[in-house]
Design a protein around this nucleic acid. Structure first.
Lengths: 206, 206
DNA sequence: GTCTATAGTTCGATAGAC
DNA sequence: GTCTATCGAACTATAGAC
Protein backbone atom coordinates (compact mmCIF):
# COMPACT_ATOMS: atom_id res chain seq x y z
CA UNK A 1 0.00 0.00 0.00
CA UNK A 2 1.62 3.18 -1.17
CA UNK A 3 1.17 6.43 0.63
CA UNK A 4 -1.73 8.74 -0.17
CA UNK A 5 -0.11 12.13 0.13
CA UNK A 6 -3.19 14.00 -1.01
CA UNK A 7 -5.32 12.30 1.63
CA UNK A 8 -2.70 12.82 4.31
CA UNK A 9 -2.63 16.53 3.56
CA UNK A 10 -6.42 16.79 3.77
CA UNK A 11 -6.47 14.90 7.07
CA UNK A 12 -3.78 17.13 8.50
CA UNK A 13 -5.46 20.27 7.15
CA UNK A 14 -8.70 19.21 8.81
CA UNK A 15 -7.01 19.03 12.20
CA UNK A 16 -5.06 22.26 11.84
CA UNK A 17 -7.97 24.29 10.41
CA UNK A 18 -10.19 22.98 13.22
CA UNK A 19 -7.73 24.06 15.90
CA UNK A 20 -6.58 27.38 14.49
CA UNK A 21 -9.23 28.54 12.02
CA UNK A 22 -8.59 29.47 8.40
CA UNK A 23 -6.54 32.58 9.17
CA UNK A 24 -4.76 31.10 12.16
CA UNK A 25 -3.70 27.99 10.29
CA UNK A 26 -0.62 28.05 8.08
CA UNK A 27 0.28 25.85 5.17
CA UNK A 28 3.57 25.20 6.92
CA UNK A 29 1.85 23.84 10.02
CA UNK A 30 -0.31 21.64 7.82
CA UNK A 31 2.76 20.33 6.00
CA UNK A 32 4.46 19.47 9.28
CA UNK A 33 1.29 17.82 10.63
CA UNK A 34 0.97 15.78 7.45
CA UNK A 35 4.66 14.93 7.38
CA UNK A 36 5.04 16.18 3.83
CA UNK A 37 7.03 18.87 2.10
CA UNK A 38 5.54 22.36 2.01
CA UNK A 39 5.68 22.53 -1.77
CA UNK A 40 3.43 19.50 -2.10
CA UNK A 41 0.48 21.33 -0.59
CA UNK A 42 0.53 23.91 -3.34
CA UNK A 43 1.24 21.29 -5.98
CA UNK A 44 -1.81 19.23 -5.01
CA UNK A 45 -4.21 22.00 -3.99
CA UNK A 46 -2.91 25.20 -5.65
CA UNK A 47 -3.87 27.43 -2.73
CA UNK A 48 -4.69 27.40 0.98
CA UNK A 49 -8.21 28.56 0.15
CA UNK A 50 -8.84 25.69 -2.30
CA UNK A 51 -7.54 23.20 0.25
CA UNK A 52 -9.91 24.58 2.85
CA UNK A 53 -12.91 24.32 0.52
CA UNK A 54 -12.13 20.72 -0.36
CA UNK A 55 -11.72 19.79 3.29
CA UNK A 56 -15.19 21.20 3.98
CA UNK A 57 -16.87 19.62 0.96
CA UNK A 58 -15.38 16.18 1.60
CA UNK A 59 -17.57 15.37 4.59
CA UNK A 60 -20.43 17.79 4.03
CA UNK A 61 -21.90 15.82 1.15
CA UNK A 62 -21.60 12.63 3.19
CA UNK A 63 -23.43 14.14 6.16
CA UNK A 64 -26.13 15.58 3.94
CA UNK A 65 -26.64 12.24 2.17
CA UNK A 66 -27.15 10.61 5.54
CA UNK A 67 -29.59 13.33 6.59
CA UNK A 68 -31.49 13.02 3.32
CA UNK A 69 -31.67 9.26 3.62
CA UNK A 70 -33.06 9.42 7.13
CA UNK A 71 -35.52 12.16 6.18
CA UNK A 72 -36.87 10.25 3.19
CA UNK A 73 -37.25 7.13 5.30
CA UNK A 74 -39.26 9.16 7.79
CA UNK A 75 -41.42 10.84 5.13
CA UNK A 76 -42.07 7.46 3.49
CA UNK A 77 -43.30 5.90 6.68
CA UNK A 78 -46.91 5.85 7.79
CA UNK A 79 -46.73 8.31 10.62
CA UNK A 80 -44.41 11.30 10.29
CA UNK A 81 -43.54 12.80 13.65
CA UNK A 82 -41.74 16.07 14.28
CA UNK A 83 -39.32 14.21 16.51
CA UNK A 84 -38.36 11.88 13.66
CA UNK A 85 -37.70 14.79 11.29
CA UNK A 86 -35.51 16.55 13.85
CA UNK A 87 -33.71 13.29 14.58
CA UNK A 88 -32.88 12.97 10.88
CA UNK A 89 -31.54 16.52 10.90
CA UNK A 90 -29.43 16.32 14.05
CA UNK A 91 -28.28 12.70 14.31
CA UNK A 92 -25.76 12.61 11.44
CA UNK A 93 -23.84 15.67 12.62
CA UNK A 94 -23.91 14.79 16.29
CA UNK A 95 -22.79 11.22 15.71
CA UNK A 96 -20.05 12.37 13.36
CA UNK A 97 -18.80 14.93 15.89
CA UNK A 98 -18.60 12.21 18.54
CA UNK A 99 -16.47 10.01 16.29
CA UNK A 100 -13.70 10.74 13.85
CA UNK A 101 -15.47 13.86 12.56
CA UNK A 102 -14.61 16.05 15.51
CA UNK A 103 -12.25 18.23 13.49
CA UNK A 104 -14.57 18.56 10.53
CA UNK A 105 -17.33 19.53 12.98
CA UNK A 106 -15.34 22.38 14.45
CA UNK A 107 -14.64 23.70 10.95
CA UNK A 108 -18.36 23.63 10.12
CA UNK A 109 -19.07 25.63 13.27
CA UNK A 110 -16.58 28.24 12.11
CA UNK A 111 -18.16 28.74 8.71
CA UNK A 112 -21.74 28.47 9.98
CA UNK A 113 -21.18 31.28 12.47
CA UNK A 114 -18.92 33.42 10.32
CA UNK A 115 -20.02 36.54 8.46
CA UNK A 116 -17.05 36.81 6.13
CA UNK A 117 -17.67 36.11 2.47
CA UNK A 118 -15.89 32.75 2.46
CA UNK A 119 -17.92 31.41 5.39
CA UNK A 120 -21.26 32.62 4.05
CA UNK A 121 -20.48 31.29 0.60
CA UNK A 122 -19.32 27.87 1.78
CA UNK A 123 -22.33 27.50 4.06
CA UNK A 124 -24.69 28.29 1.21
CA UNK A 125 -22.95 26.00 -1.26
CA UNK A 126 -22.91 23.04 1.12
CA UNK A 127 -26.14 23.41 3.07
CA UNK A 128 -28.79 25.46 1.22
CA UNK A 129 -30.30 22.48 -0.58
CA UNK A 130 -30.60 20.21 2.44
CA UNK A 131 -31.89 23.10 4.54
CA UNK A 132 -34.76 23.70 2.14
CA UNK A 133 -35.71 20.02 2.26
CA UNK A 134 -35.96 20.06 6.04
CA UNK A 135 -37.77 23.39 6.14
CA UNK A 136 -40.35 22.05 3.72
CA UNK A 137 -40.75 18.88 5.78
CA UNK A 138 -41.24 20.89 8.97
CA UNK A 139 -43.81 23.14 7.38
CA UNK A 140 -45.65 20.18 5.89
CA UNK A 141 -45.86 18.04 8.99
CA UNK A 142 -46.22 20.48 11.87
CA UNK A 143 -49.77 21.74 12.13
CA UNK A 144 -49.94 25.52 12.05
CA UNK A 145 -46.27 26.12 11.26
CA UNK A 146 -45.97 28.66 8.45
CA UNK A 147 -42.91 29.03 6.26
CA UNK A 148 -41.40 31.86 8.31
CA UNK A 149 -41.58 29.91 11.54
CA UNK A 150 -40.38 26.76 9.80
CA UNK A 151 -37.23 28.64 8.80
CA UNK A 152 -36.76 29.84 12.36
CA UNK A 153 -37.33 26.33 13.71
CA UNK A 154 -34.68 25.03 11.31
CA UNK A 155 -32.23 27.79 12.23
CA UNK A 156 -32.74 27.29 15.95
CA UNK A 157 -32.12 23.57 15.60
CA UNK A 158 -28.94 24.22 13.63
CA UNK A 159 -27.83 26.80 16.20
CA UNK A 160 -28.18 24.36 19.08
CA UNK A 161 -26.47 21.68 17.01
CA UNK A 162 -23.54 23.93 16.14
CA UNK A 163 -22.57 24.66 19.73
CA UNK A 164 -23.09 21.00 20.62
CA UNK A 165 -20.70 19.75 17.97
CA UNK A 166 -18.25 22.58 18.63
CA UNK A 167 -17.47 20.84 21.92
CA UNK A 168 -16.10 23.94 23.56
CA UNK A 169 -16.25 22.16 26.89
CA UNK A 170 -18.56 24.85 28.20
CA UNK A 171 -21.29 22.52 29.50
CA UNK A 172 -18.59 20.69 31.42
CA UNK A 173 -17.28 23.90 32.96
CA UNK A 174 -20.74 25.18 33.94
CA UNK A 175 -21.86 21.84 35.36
CA UNK A 176 -18.59 20.80 37.03
CA UNK A 177 -18.34 17.83 34.70
CA UNK A 178 -21.90 16.70 35.33
CA UNK A 179 -22.92 17.09 31.68
CA UNK A 180 -19.90 15.32 30.24
CA UNK A 181 -20.88 11.76 31.11
CA UNK A 182 -23.58 11.24 28.57
CA UNK A 183 -23.92 8.84 25.65
CA UNK A 184 -24.34 10.15 22.13
CA UNK A 185 -27.76 8.53 21.94
CA UNK A 186 -28.90 10.26 25.13
CA UNK A 187 -27.61 13.59 23.79
CA UNK A 188 -29.58 13.21 20.58
CA UNK A 189 -32.76 12.26 22.38
CA UNK A 190 -32.50 15.16 24.78
CA UNK A 191 -31.86 17.75 22.11
CA UNK A 192 -34.61 16.39 19.84
CA UNK A 193 -37.06 16.58 22.73
CA UNK A 194 -36.01 20.19 23.35
CA UNK A 195 -36.19 21.27 19.71
CA UNK A 196 -39.52 19.53 19.10
CA UNK A 197 -41.16 21.35 22.00
CA UNK A 198 -39.73 24.67 20.84
CA UNK A 199 -40.87 24.10 17.27
CA UNK A 200 -44.41 23.26 18.35
CA UNK A 201 -44.47 26.45 20.38
CA UNK A 202 -43.82 28.39 17.17
CA UNK A 203 -46.76 26.77 15.42
CA UNK A 204 -50.26 28.10 15.61
CA UNK A 205 -49.30 31.48 17.03
CA UNK A 206 -52.34 33.66 16.26
CA UNK B 1 -13.49 68.46 22.84
CA UNK B 2 -10.17 66.80 22.26
CA UNK B 3 -9.81 63.54 20.49
CA UNK B 4 -9.99 60.26 22.37
CA UNK B 5 -7.38 58.23 20.55
CA UNK B 6 -7.68 55.28 22.89
CA UNK B 7 -11.43 55.10 22.38
CA UNK B 8 -11.10 55.55 18.63
CA UNK B 9 -8.70 52.61 18.47
CA UNK B 10 -11.06 50.41 20.46
CA UNK B 11 -14.00 51.35 18.25
CA UNK B 12 -12.00 50.61 15.13
CA UNK B 13 -10.65 47.37 16.57
CA UNK B 14 -14.19 46.28 17.37
CA UNK B 15 -15.21 46.68 13.74
CA UNK B 16 -12.11 45.05 12.27
CA UNK B 17 -12.05 42.12 14.71
CA UNK B 18 -15.76 41.54 14.05
CA UNK B 19 -15.23 41.43 10.30
CA UNK B 20 -11.97 39.50 10.13
CA UNK B 21 -11.60 37.63 13.40
CA UNK B 22 -8.60 37.87 15.71
CA UNK B 23 -6.17 36.17 13.34
CA UNK B 24 -7.56 37.76 10.21
CA UNK B 25 -7.39 41.26 11.64
CA UNK B 26 -4.13 43.21 11.56
CA UNK B 27 -3.00 46.04 13.77
CA UNK B 28 -2.28 47.97 10.60
CA UNK B 29 -5.88 47.64 9.39
CA UNK B 30 -7.10 48.77 12.79
CA UNK B 31 -4.79 51.79 12.70
CA UNK B 32 -6.10 52.79 9.26
CA UNK B 33 -9.73 52.28 10.35
CA UNK B 34 -9.12 54.40 13.46
CA UNK B 35 -7.21 57.03 11.51
CA UNK B 36 -4.26 56.83 13.86
CA UNK B 37 -0.61 55.94 13.59
CA UNK B 38 0.33 52.26 13.85
CA UNK B 39 2.71 52.90 16.72
CA UNK B 40 -0.07 54.32 18.86
CA UNK B 41 -1.84 50.99 19.03
CA UNK B 42 1.13 49.35 20.68
CA UNK B 43 1.77 52.39 22.84
CA UNK B 44 -1.77 52.35 24.25
CA UNK B 45 -2.44 48.60 24.31
CA UNK B 46 0.98 46.93 24.26
CA UNK B 47 -0.18 44.01 22.12
CA UNK B 48 -2.87 42.93 19.68
CA UNK B 49 -4.01 40.32 22.18
CA UNK B 50 -4.44 42.82 25.01
CA UNK B 51 -6.39 45.13 22.70
CA UNK B 52 -8.71 42.26 21.79
CA UNK B 53 -9.35 41.36 25.41
CA UNK B 54 -10.19 44.95 26.32
CA UNK B 55 -12.55 45.26 23.37
CA UNK B 56 -14.40 42.17 24.58
CA UNK B 57 -14.50 43.18 28.24
CA UNK B 58 -15.73 46.71 27.51
CA UNK B 59 -19.26 45.70 26.57
CA UNK B 60 -19.48 42.31 28.25
CA UNK B 61 -19.74 43.75 31.75
CA UNK B 62 -22.35 46.20 30.54
CA UNK B 63 -24.48 43.45 28.99
CA UNK B 64 -24.14 41.25 32.06
CA UNK B 65 -25.14 44.13 34.37
CA UNK B 66 -28.26 44.61 32.30
CA UNK B 67 -29.02 40.88 32.42
CA UNK B 68 -28.46 40.75 36.15
CA UNK B 69 -30.67 43.77 36.73
CA UNK B 70 -33.53 42.26 34.73
CA UNK B 71 -33.09 38.87 36.42
CA UNK B 72 -33.18 40.32 39.92
CA UNK B 73 -36.26 42.34 39.05
CA UNK B 74 -37.93 39.14 37.90
CA UNK B 75 -36.86 37.13 40.94
CA UNK B 76 -38.04 39.93 43.24
CA UNK B 77 -41.51 39.99 41.74
CA UNK B 78 -44.43 37.97 43.00
CA UNK B 79 -44.69 35.46 40.20
CA UNK B 80 -41.52 34.24 38.56
CA UNK B 81 -42.17 32.82 35.10
CA UNK B 82 -39.72 30.89 32.95
CA UNK B 83 -40.46 33.29 30.13
CA UNK B 84 -39.41 36.25 32.24
CA UNK B 85 -36.10 34.59 33.18
CA UNK B 86 -35.31 33.77 29.55
CA UNK B 87 -36.30 37.30 28.52
CA UNK B 88 -33.79 38.68 31.02
CA UNK B 89 -31.11 36.40 29.56
CA UNK B 90 -31.75 37.07 25.88
CA UNK B 91 -33.04 40.64 25.66
CA UNK B 92 -29.82 42.55 26.48
CA UNK B 93 -27.73 40.75 23.85
CA UNK B 94 -30.39 40.77 21.14
CA UNK B 95 -31.18 44.45 21.63
CA UNK B 96 -27.50 45.33 21.65
CA UNK B 97 -26.88 43.35 18.46
CA UNK B 98 -29.71 45.25 16.76
CA UNK B 99 -28.19 48.60 17.71
CA UNK B 100 -24.64 49.86 17.87
CA UNK B 101 -23.39 46.60 19.33
CA UNK B 102 -23.44 44.64 16.10
CA UNK B 103 -19.66 44.40 15.92
CA UNK B 104 -19.21 43.48 19.55
CA UNK B 105 -21.87 40.80 19.05
CA UNK B 106 -20.03 39.17 16.20
CA UNK B 107 -16.86 39.07 18.31
CA UNK B 108 -18.74 37.37 21.15
CA UNK B 109 -20.00 34.75 18.72
CA UNK B 110 -16.42 34.05 17.69
CA UNK B 111 -15.16 33.46 21.21
CA UNK B 112 -18.29 31.60 22.35
CA UNK B 113 -17.95 29.08 19.53
CA UNK B 114 -14.15 28.85 19.50
CA UNK B 115 -12.17 26.02 21.04
CA UNK B 116 -8.79 27.74 21.10
CA UNK B 117 -7.40 28.70 24.48
CA UNK B 118 -8.00 32.42 24.07
CA UNK B 119 -11.68 31.96 23.20
CA UNK B 120 -12.38 29.47 25.98
CA UNK B 121 -10.55 31.63 28.50
CA UNK B 122 -12.28 34.88 27.51
CA UNK B 123 -15.69 33.22 27.54
CA UNK B 124 -15.09 31.86 31.04
CA UNK B 125 -13.73 35.13 32.38
CA UNK B 126 -16.62 37.18 31.05
CA UNK B 127 -19.59 34.85 31.33
CA UNK B 128 -19.12 32.12 33.95
CA UNK B 129 -20.55 34.17 36.82
CA UNK B 130 -23.67 35.36 35.02
CA UNK B 131 -24.22 31.89 33.59
CA UNK B 132 -24.32 30.35 37.05
CA UNK B 133 -26.87 32.92 38.18
CA UNK B 134 -29.22 32.05 35.34
CA UNK B 135 -28.69 28.32 35.69
CA UNK B 136 -29.58 28.56 39.37
CA UNK B 137 -32.67 30.62 38.57
CA UNK B 138 -33.81 28.10 35.96
CA UNK B 139 -33.33 25.17 38.32
CA UNK B 140 -35.14 26.98 41.11
CA UNK B 141 -38.19 28.09 39.18
CA UNK B 142 -38.83 25.33 36.66
CA UNK B 143 -40.58 22.41 38.29
CA UNK B 144 -38.68 19.17 37.76
CA UNK B 145 -35.60 20.71 36.13
CA UNK B 146 -32.47 19.26 37.69
CA UNK B 147 -29.08 20.92 37.56
CA UNK B 148 -27.87 18.96 34.55
CA UNK B 149 -30.89 19.89 32.46
CA UNK B 150 -30.73 23.46 33.71
CA UNK B 151 -27.21 23.70 32.32
CA UNK B 152 -28.39 22.29 28.99
CA UNK B 153 -31.33 24.68 28.94
CA UNK B 154 -28.94 27.57 29.50
CA UNK B 155 -26.52 26.35 26.84
CA UNK B 156 -29.27 25.83 24.29
CA UNK B 157 -30.59 29.32 24.91
CA UNK B 158 -27.12 30.79 24.48
CA UNK B 159 -26.60 28.72 21.32
CA UNK B 160 -29.75 30.05 19.70
CA UNK B 161 -28.85 33.55 20.83
CA UNK B 162 -25.36 33.33 19.38
CA UNK B 163 -26.48 32.56 15.84
CA UNK B 164 -29.20 35.19 16.12
CA UNK B 165 -26.80 37.97 17.05
CA UNK B 166 -24.19 36.73 14.57
CA UNK B 167 -26.53 37.98 11.84
CA UNK B 168 -25.02 35.79 9.18
CA UNK B 169 -27.99 36.58 6.94
CA UNK B 170 -28.81 32.89 6.76
CA UNK B 171 -32.48 33.20 7.77
CA UNK B 172 -32.87 35.76 5.02
CA UNK B 173 -31.29 33.47 2.43
CA UNK B 174 -33.37 30.45 3.46
CA UNK B 175 -36.64 32.39 3.61
CA UNK B 176 -36.10 34.63 0.57
CA UNK B 177 -36.10 37.66 2.82
CA UNK B 178 -39.28 36.67 4.62
CA UNK B 179 -37.59 36.49 8.02
CA UNK B 180 -35.77 39.79 7.73
CA UNK B 181 -38.72 42.08 8.25
CA UNK B 182 -39.19 41.62 11.96
CA UNK B 183 -38.93 43.99 14.88
CA UNK B 184 -36.46 43.34 17.68
CA UNK B 185 -39.34 42.98 20.12
CA UNK B 186 -41.02 40.35 17.96
CA UNK B 187 -37.71 38.47 17.64
CA UNK B 188 -37.26 38.38 21.40
CA UNK B 189 -40.80 37.21 22.02
CA UNK B 190 -40.54 34.45 19.42
CA UNK B 191 -37.24 33.11 20.68
CA UNK B 192 -38.34 33.26 24.33
CA UNK B 193 -41.46 31.30 23.46
CA UNK B 194 -39.32 28.71 21.68
CA UNK B 195 -36.74 28.37 24.46
CA UNK B 196 -39.35 28.24 27.21
CA UNK B 197 -41.15 25.32 25.56
CA UNK B 198 -37.87 23.49 25.01
CA UNK B 199 -36.78 24.05 28.60
CA UNK B 200 -40.08 22.74 29.98
CA UNK B 201 -39.65 19.65 27.82
CA UNK B 202 -36.36 18.96 29.59
CA UNK B 203 -38.02 19.12 33.01
CA UNK B 204 -39.60 16.15 34.65
CA UNK B 205 -38.10 13.55 32.36
CA UNK B 206 -38.37 10.33 34.34
C1' DG C 1 5.66 13.74 -7.75
C1' DT C 2 8.84 15.39 -4.61
C1' DC C 3 12.41 18.19 -3.13
C1' DT C 4 15.28 22.80 -2.12
C1' DA C 5 15.53 27.41 -2.26
C1' DT C 6 13.69 31.67 -2.37
C1' DA C 7 10.89 35.46 -4.16
C1' DG C 8 7.85 38.88 -2.58
C1' DT C 9 4.73 40.29 1.07
C1' DT C 10 3.07 41.28 5.28
C1' DC C 11 3.02 40.75 10.02
C1' DG C 12 3.61 42.37 15.33
C1' DA C 13 6.39 45.07 17.78
C1' DT C 14 9.92 48.59 18.99
C1' DA C 15 13.56 52.31 18.92
C1' DG C 16 14.21 56.92 18.84
C1' DA C 17 13.23 61.71 17.09
C1' DC C 18 10.06 65.31 18.21
C1' DG D 1 1.68 61.25 23.10
C1' DT D 2 2.60 60.98 18.43
C1' DC D 3 5.38 60.30 14.62
C1' DT D 4 8.87 57.79 11.17
C1' DA D 5 11.50 54.09 10.21
C1' DT D 6 12.61 49.62 10.56
C1' DC D 7 13.79 45.05 12.65
C1' DG D 8 13.16 40.26 12.55
C1' DA D 9 10.12 36.83 11.78
C1' DA D 10 6.53 34.62 9.46
C1' DC D 11 3.60 34.07 5.64
C1' DT D 12 1.73 32.14 0.68
C1' DA D 13 3.26 30.77 -3.38
C1' DT D 14 6.42 29.48 -7.10
C1' DA D 15 10.61 28.31 -9.90
C1' DG D 16 13.56 24.83 -11.05
C1' DA D 17 16.54 20.68 -9.97
C1' DC D 18 15.83 15.82 -9.59
Amino acid sequence: MRRDVRGDIMDAAERVFADLGFDGATTRAIAVEAGVNLGLIHYHFQSKEALFEQVVARHASQVNDRRRGLLHAVLGSGTVTLEAILDALMRPTIELSAGDGQHYSRIIVQIASGTDERSVDLTSRNFDAIAQEFIAALQEHVEGLDRENAVWAYMNAISVGMLMIARTGRVGVLSDGLCDEESTEASIQRVVRYLAAGTRALAGVD
